[in-house]
Design a protein around this nucleic acid. Sequence first.
DNA 1: TTTTGAGTTGTTCGA
DNA 2: GTCGAACAACTCAAA
Length: 471
Amino acid sequence: MSTAIWWVRRDLRLADNQALRAAMAQSESVVPVFILDPRLLASPYSSTQRNAFLLAGLRSLDQDLRQLGSRLIIHQGDPVEALTILRSQSGATAVYAEEDISPYARRRDARVQAALPLILTNGLTVHPPDLLLKKDGCPYTVYTPFSKTWKSLPRPVEANLLSKPTALNTPKGLPTLPLSFGPALSDQIPFKPGEAEALRRLEKFVRSTDLAIYQYGEQRNRPDIDGTSALSPYIRFGMLSLRRAVVAASQAIEEAPDKMSHKSAETWLNELIWREFYLTILYHFPHVRQRSFRSQYDGINWDNDTQAFEAWCQGRTGYPIVDAAMRQLQQSGWMHNRTRMITASFLVKDLLIDWRWGERWFIQHLIDGDPASNNGGWQWTAGTGTDAAPYFRIFNPVLQSKKFDPQGKYIRRWLPELSDVPDRYIHEPWRMPADIQIQTNCRIGQDYPRPIVDHASARKRTLAAYKLVSG
DNA sequence: TTTTGAGTTGTTCGA
DNA sequence: GTCGAACAACTCAAA
């Protein structure tokens, strides 16, 4: 009887899993394995809560596998060694895995491929990154033409998605580690791990009676409203395939009742394509993890004030929208997309701190932290990346706050010390007269920090620093 | 090869 | 208070 190993990495799902499908097609018996790679778990880019989410996700996958008569094998250690051991224990003839594109993953897979019969399948992206190219054969570096070509290619349809396997034959008696170890997921993390939860959320977003996907265009920018799909942690770990999300988006676009709804659903699809764009960029330009995509910006003379950086990390800059967002990140492991841009712009352009410092802090705290999207977002904000914001486009944290959190609901949720501050001063509490500061228990400089920089002068300093290297 | 049109997410200033 | 222009030219993709 032939046996194959299904090596789970960031595809913690049974439905629409091309690696699992390939393993099942080639073998009567399949061994699902996850390898806890100490190099990843202890990396300076790892996050305790993201690791906890992963481990909880593995427990959930193990439960799903038990229902099929199988189970998830856990190994700890170097992947080449672990797979070699597992191969001799199980008598497997091949290892199947979904291709990953990060520089570390590709080096690791090349090492495994040199030692073992490893077969990589597509599935992380809808269109493989080495196939979606310009007519001259080079990769796209601008989003709009990339997305046009992406949309011109055949779209996945529901019928083509593999339904969940109904049974999985796995050899018995393989040694495994218990999944009870490791950090626990904090109760403050508003994401329940697992494939079932991912699908429930997707259904709710695209089909619920409140038509969330059809209001996405307007509501997605409001951190005070639950207007986003909040699917990013699930897509990050493959509890939901990008392909399945695209199918849902395409159906919603087709069935849209009016023009605005149509546009909204199209906007959400574009967000999925942005994810694919940045995965493709990292695949073709791995140097972006170390340096600016546009090399002239490596010469920026950053201020890199460690005290200012610490204030930003801890949410003590004195700008409420920035501080609320940074506390949301630390407490809940997630941050709204609009405030990711606001806080990133503040770090880079108000504090003149190297975008890589912020990139690292985000990846150390985000449950959905993904090297490709995180790097793409930071380089976009810093103006150093592909298709980046022009460097003179500097967010004004007060205007952004007034525009996207008009009543200060988001601010008050994450900054209880500002809960009694009147609406009039909620976006810039340092303007409060002294008597109101006392009445509302919010003395600036004591209960809540004074702004650590003046936006107008910080803006001028940054424009000058960028101008020096651009041109 | 040269040319042409276009490019996620803004802000500030002055009329 | 509202509006358009300036920010600053540059790179990319495709004809």
